[in-house]
Structure formats: structure tokens, C-alpha cells
């Protein structure tokens, strides 16, 4: 590593250490702030959020590195979209943890990307029951409550009533 781009050591929530170039690390607004606070690039940066495990951080760093590369080479939107699309294709658990990590680390485009993925999944579901099935959510409404919300805004609850 050149002197202009020293390595930063991150400590994940499950106590693993990852070394990454500063230019990559500072793409996260939070890490950037923490480095500036200490003013010492040799100090280990602890990631206190539960989502920042080794697994997830490796993925987040992969994303950051790839996007740093795209920015430097001025890659086509097509190439970027393809990478993003592939990056989105993960299990629900990983998607969720990546959202939490991106939220904690304040990486806007990653957060946007993963939330978009979940929103798209919701859009694919035709009825509330489909959503519950898809994401394994328990129904805590009583039948009376269901009727009540239906009555309140009938059009919302009828997929045909466009």
C-alpha cells in the first residue's frame, strides 16, 4: 500500500480483524468519522453493531471495493447494474443483515440497493397472505380486525380495484 492510502484495521462484532485500504474504508461515512476522530490510522476501528459480523463485512467490503473500482475506471452503467443485481441475489438473512450494516455504516447506495431488493420482493406478492408466506410473518390480526381495516379503505385491499 502506498503511503497516501494506508491500511485500516476493522474489528468486526464477532472479534475478527479485517485490513482494508483507507480509501475503501472511508466510503463509509461512519468509519471515516471514527478515523478522523482518533486521527491515527494504526488504531483498530471497532464495529459495535450486531450486524457487522465477519461474513457480512466481507460482503460489504466486496461491494465497496467493486464500486471504488467502477468509480475509478468510469465503468458503464450496464456493468454496474449487473454487479448490483448479482449482489442482491442472496438469502433473506444476508439481505437483512446487509441492510442493517449499511444503515449502521452509513453507506447510502448499498442501503438503497438492498432496500430496493426487499421492496421488489414485496411488489411481487399479490396479496398480504403472499407477503406473510414469502417472509414467514405471523398474522396477529383477529378476523374482526381484518374486516375493520377492509372497511376503512376498501379500494386498498382489493387488488382489482384500480
Amino acid at each position: 500500500m502506498s503511503e497516501a492510502d494506508p491500511e485500516i484495521t476493522l474489528e468486526t462484532y464477532d472479534k475478527h480483524q479485517i485490513k482494508i485500504p483507507k480509501s475503501i474504508a472511508t466510503r463509509s461515512a461512519i468509519i471515516n468519522m471514527m478515523i478522523e476522530d482518533t486521527g491515527d490510522v494504526n488504531e483498530v476501528v471497532p464495529l459495535a453493531d450486531k450486524s457487522c459480523t465477519l461474513n457480512i463485512m466481507n460482503r460489504v467490503i466486496e461491494y465497496l471495493k467493486k464500486h471504488a473500482e467502477f468509480d475509478n475506471t468510469g465503468a458503464d452503467d450496464e456493468v454496474i447494474n449487473e454487479f448490483d443485481k448479482e449482489f442482491q441475489e442472496q438469502s433473506d438473512e444476508i439481505i437483512f443483515q446487509t441492510i442493517l450494516a449499511a444503515n449502521f455504516l452509513d453507506i447510502k447506495n448499498l442501503l438503497e440497493l438492498m432496500c430496493k431488493k426487499v421492496a421488489d420482493e414485496i411488489k411481487k406478492c399479490k396479496t398480504p397472505d403472499d407477503i406473510r408466506d414469502r417472509f414467514n410473518i405471523r398474522k396477529d390480526y383477529t378476523p374482526e380486525e381484518v374486516e375493520e381495516v377492509k372497511r376503512a379503505h376498501p379500494w386498498i385491499y382489493d387488488k382489482n380495484a384500480k
Binding site: 437483512f96 441492510i99 442493517l100 444503515n103 442501503l111 438503497e112 432496500c115 430496493k116 426487499v118 421492496a119 414485496i122 411488489k123 406478492c125 396479496t127 398480504p128 407477503i131 406473510r132 410473518i137 405471523r138 398474522k139 396477529d140 390480526y141 381484518v146 381495516v149 379503505h153 379500494w155 386498498i156 385491499y157 387488488k159 384500480k162
Partner: peptide
């Protein structure tokens, strides 16, 4: 997280479906 996700739904019908999922 739900906050972040719902703000990316851009049709009333999508959001309407989510109203009925749970409390």
C-alpha cells in the same frame, strides 16, 4: 428497517397490501 423499505414502495396499492400483513 421496515421504514426504509416502505419508503421505496411507490404505489398506494403496494403500501395497502402491507397494511394488512400484521399490526
Amino acid at each position: 428497517i421496515l421504514d426504509l423499505i416502505f419508503s421505496r414502495l411507490n404505489d398506494g396499492l403496494e403500501l395497502g397490501k402491507c397494511c394488512r400483513v400484521n399490526r
